[in-house]
């Protein structure tokens, strides 16, 4: 196991270099640059001024030279500063990460807590009314556009009923509140985004669970368990579910990079200060340093997430062992 892990970890390095080269060249090849934010169709800015700022920032160098410089800085873990506001990009990411992690962990938790039971029950009682109703429900969540669902919930719970705040992460009167009131305030702000984010991905996960459970319940060891006279709970809830959950581990591993990559649409609608908006705006404003930092970090997490999924797999499923390979 250990040599396998080491080998996998070493593979991360060339992967990251490859990803960084491709994304660096891609973003540089896209027309425009960071200076356009102040210069595009701005009659105050003459071409000479553009040239001067561009030179000062080193954008007039050939792209390979710029990449070499960037890689040199990266080797010292210097991700550089954002062109938009002059702050270190790592600080900008660090500022956003907690909010994104919070929302994503909550919504993934919500998803698993709802999807696993729905999927399992649907499989055990395949083709029952519950199976059909839950299918309709999850696909409804899946097919209604996030945007429409969010606005609908905002109108009902925010505007009409007044139970929940409409958007944002905290109230204007947040800072003077005592700690418990602050937590409650944030919790209230998180309800709608968590719900919307969770509902849209419920379908996939619950169908996964249903399928894998269906496969398991028809296997011999389940029949044996039933024949032994075990209770339904022990047959399905323990023996069947444990096996059916294995494929979901893969899903979970694949979700790890999503943990830090926020959804642009959901964050935009809820005025939520997360990574999705940061990344989207970085790309649109050609904030190269920020784009690269986010790309490298997400790439790293994706690779590590896959690795973690493999390890979890091996742990959960005795049939799989990597030592020999």
């Amino acid at each position: 196991m250990i040599p396998y892990l080491l080998r996998r970890l070493l593979q991360v390095i060339p992967t990251l270099i490859g990803i960084s080269i491709i994304s660096f060249f891609l973003i540089q090849l896209a027309p425009g640059g960071p200076i356009d934010q102040i210069a595009d169709l701005n009659p105050h800015v003459t071409p000479e001024v553009k040239q001067r700022i561009s030179h000062d920032m080193g954008f007039d160098q050939p792209i390979p030279v710029q990449y070499a410089r960037w890689a040199g800085r990266m080797a010292r873990f210097d991700f550089g500063k954002s062109f938009n506001d002059g702050r270190p990009v790592l600080r900008k990411i660090a500022e956003r990460l907690p909010a994104t992690l919070l929302l994503n962990i909550l919504s993934i938790l919500f998803m698993f807590l709802v999807a696993v039971p729905i999927g399992a029950i649907s499989a055990v009682k395949a083709n029952s009314w519950f199976d059909k109703a839950s299918t309709v429900f999850v696909f409804l969540g899946f097919s209604v556009p996030t945007y429409a669902l969010a606005l609908l919930l905002m109108i009902i719970f925010g505007l009409e009923l007044g139970w929940l705040p409409i958007s944002g992460l905290r109230s204007l009167s947040f800072m003077p509140m005592p700690l418990t009131a602050r937590m409650l305030d944030m919790a209230r702000h998180l309800v709608l985004p968590t719900l919307v984010l969770g509902l849209t991905d419920l379908a996939g996960l619950s169908r996964y669970m249903r399928n894998s459970m269906l496969e398991v319940v028809h296997q011999d060891f389940i029949r044996t368990a039933k024949a032994k006279g075990l209770s339904n709970w022990r047959v399905y809830g323990v023996h069947a579910a444990r096996n059916a959950l294995i494929p979901l581990l893969t899903m979970f591993g694949l979700m790890i990079p999503d943990l830090i990559g926020g959804g642009v649409i959901i964050e935009t609608i809820f005025a939520y200060p997360g990574m999705g908006r940061l990344g989207y705006e970085a790309i649109m404003t050609r904030d190269y340093n920020l784009v690269m930092a986010i790309t490298v970090i997400s790439a790293l997490l994706t690779v590590l997430g896959n690795l973690l999924a493999d390890i979890l797999y091996a742990y959960a499923d005795p049939r799989i062992r990597y030592a020999g390979r």
């Binding site: 606005l151 905002m154 109108i155 925010g158 505007l159 007044g162 705040p165 409409i166 958007s167 944002g168 204007l172 935009t268 609608i269 809820f270 005025a271 908006r277």
Partner: peptide, 20 residues
């Protein structure tokens, strides 16, 4: 003076109607 950033105009309008 509070300057709130609400990137979506439809949501901004809901916040306005809500008097927030």
């Amino acid at each position: 003076y509070i300057y709130r950033i609400i990137p979506d105009q439809a949501v901004e309008f809901l916040e306005l109607r809500n008097q927030s």
